[in-house]
Design a protein around this nucleic acid. Structure first.
Length: 463
RNA sequence: GGCGUCGUACCCAAGUGGUUCAAGGGGGCGGUUUGCAAAACCGUUAUUCACCGGUUCGAAUCCGGUCGACGCCUCCA
């Protein structure tokens, strides 16, 4: 079966075929660095990580670009509120963002272009749009995109503007725009914005939000590239507007496949600070979540289904991660090298087929768990051949290259090891009272000791 | 008002016309194992997929309706 992805543009699954064989050009909408990103934001970034990891597993060379929005209404407002320069604000939150990515083990993009570094490219694109009569200049020096000039406008979300409700906001904007739904490409400078402006053919100002992605994706990936991703909330207006801008400015096709992940809800509702159900990654780490736990929670629901994030999902994830990590250790104790000619268990092709089907991670995990059970049975009965252990390790490496759930080995502290050694002696002397006492002592230090056929095994206590 | 999504066991969550399709995980209960545990494994936990009709030889899966949850219609991953 060939790899299929659901394309938001055509609203169906399509066989994936890159423009250039073997290479994938991927653009994913990044954060606006005015505040710490929350778990909902990271659902989208985790989905994109999944997509990218799968493309890499399939042997594609992936060029991944993620933008950093470091100038817009929110960043400007925040910098004034906090009375610090905008560059200081965005530097701080960009740093936080990268820390969180690391915690979540999200693979870094090849490039993280910043909007403020690419204003000239945006200006050039807007000039093109003006030249092509897709944009017009308003009295105040702002430049707007005329949606009537692009016949396919509305394709991503299937909007018919004659049937739309008009919000107060739209009505308020009608003074400067020819049509209420026209969107801004260039915002003219206002005095209260101080020194935050760039010069342009239309006077001082700053770029509109949508144009940065059009300009930067073109600069790094060319006019026409393979995949563009984001959360569903980017469908409209952001991505719709990007298409309009790019197609009209370059007069070439823009993106082949648009992929969007669904919302993450908290306790069945939308996240909001006022309700106290707003989680940053650092909040969750404090509550005992780890990167692996969050990865499992985020990847165990299909990316196009709504995901309800609840605290009690932590336990399930912990169990699963420990089970996988234990199995990996068991296999490594039999065979810890994977030769170049190593084979894979038959479950691997089923695993791959599930992911080929629009990244169906729940099915892929289900197949994997069946194999986990079978492999544990063989290990229990001591009937696992060395070759099988090798292919097991190989399979786990492949699974881990997608999900990245196996815990890093933490070194057992000397304090604990000493107790384990004393316990070893007690056990040889059948001193069960002391043995149990030492086990509790080890527990108090935050470790679990298990008695296995091959001796005592230590692992960190779950939080 | 327009466009669209969803409702599967105690919880999470796949499957979207038919031979293990009612997966898989967590939890509970019972068991094997263990000095006792833990881990692992075994059994059990939905004759049924919100409800009502229809199409079909056959539907959780398609169609119509009802109820309920939700998203978008220029802040938003």
């Amino acid at each position: 079966m060939s790899t299929q992805f659901y394309n938001s543009l055509t609203r169906k699954k399509e066989i994936f075929k890159p423009i250039e064989p073997g290479k994938v050009k991927l653009y994913t909408c990044g954060p606006t660095v005015y505040d710490t990103a929350h778990i909902g934001n990271f659902r989208a970034f985790m989905f994109e990580d999944l997509l990218k990891r799968y493309l890499l597993l399939k042997g594609f060379e992936v060029n991944h670009i993620m933008n950093i929005t470091d100038v817009d209404d929110k960043t400007i407002k925040r910098s004034f509120d906090e009375n610090i320069p905008i560059s200081e604000l965005t530097k701080k939150y960009t740093g936080r963002f990268f820390e969180d990515l690391k915690v979540l083990k999200i693979l870094p993009a090849d490039n993280y272009p910043k909007a403020t570094n690419h204003v000239p490219a945006m200006v050039r694109m807007i000039e093109n749009l003006v030249k092509n009569k897709n944009a017009y200049i308003a009295d105040d020096g702002s430049v707007y995109f005329a949606i009537d000039s692009y016949h396919d406008y509305g394709q991503l979300i299937n909007l018919d503007f004659s049937q739309q409700k008009r919000s107060n906001r739209i009505l308020a904007d009608e003074y400067t725009k020819e049509k209420p739904q026209d969107f801004v490409l260039w915002k003219s400078w206002k005095e209260k914005e101080g020194d935050i402006f760039w010069d342009s053919p239309w006077g001082k100002g700053r770029p509109g939000w949508h144009i940065e992605c059009s300009a930067m994706s073109t600069e790094y990936l060319g006019n026409h590239f393979d995949i563009h991703c984001g959360g569903v909330d980017n469908l409209f207006p952001h991505h719709e507007n990007e298409i309009a801008q790019s197609v009209c400015a370059t007069e070439e096709p823009f993106v082949n496949i648009w992929m969007h992940c669904e919302y993450l809800l908290v306790e069945k509702g939308k996240m909001s600070k006022s309700q106290g159900n707003y989680f940053r990654i650092s909040d969750l780490i404090e509550k005992g979540f780890s990167g692996e736990i969050l990865r499992y929670i985020l990847l165990n629901t299909h990316y196009r289904s709504k995901l309800n994030f609840t605290m009690d999902k932590k336990h399930e994830a912990e169990q699963v991660i420990q089970r996988i990590t234990d199995l990996y250790d068991r296999l490594l104790s039999i065979n810890n090298t994977v030769e170049n000619n190593a084979s894979l268990p038959k479950e691997y092709s089923q695993f791959e087929r599930a992911l080929d089907n629009d990244l169906d991670t729940p099915v892929a995990l289900a197949i994997f768990f069946e194999w986990v059970r079978k492999t544990n049975i063989k290990l229990d009965s001591d009937s696992l051949q060395e070759k099988e252990a090798e292919s097991g390790v190989y399979f786990l490496d492949k699974v881990n290259s997608i999900f990245d759930l196996i815990k890093e080995n933490i070194e057992v502290p000397k304090e604990v090891l000493d107790l384990v050694n004393v316990r070893q002696k007690a056990r040889q002397e059948n001193d069960w009272v002391l043995s149990d006492k030492l086990r509790y002592k080890i527990n108090d230090l935050g470790w679990i000791v298990e008695d296995t056929l091959t001796g005592q095994k230590c692992k960190p206590l779950k939080s």
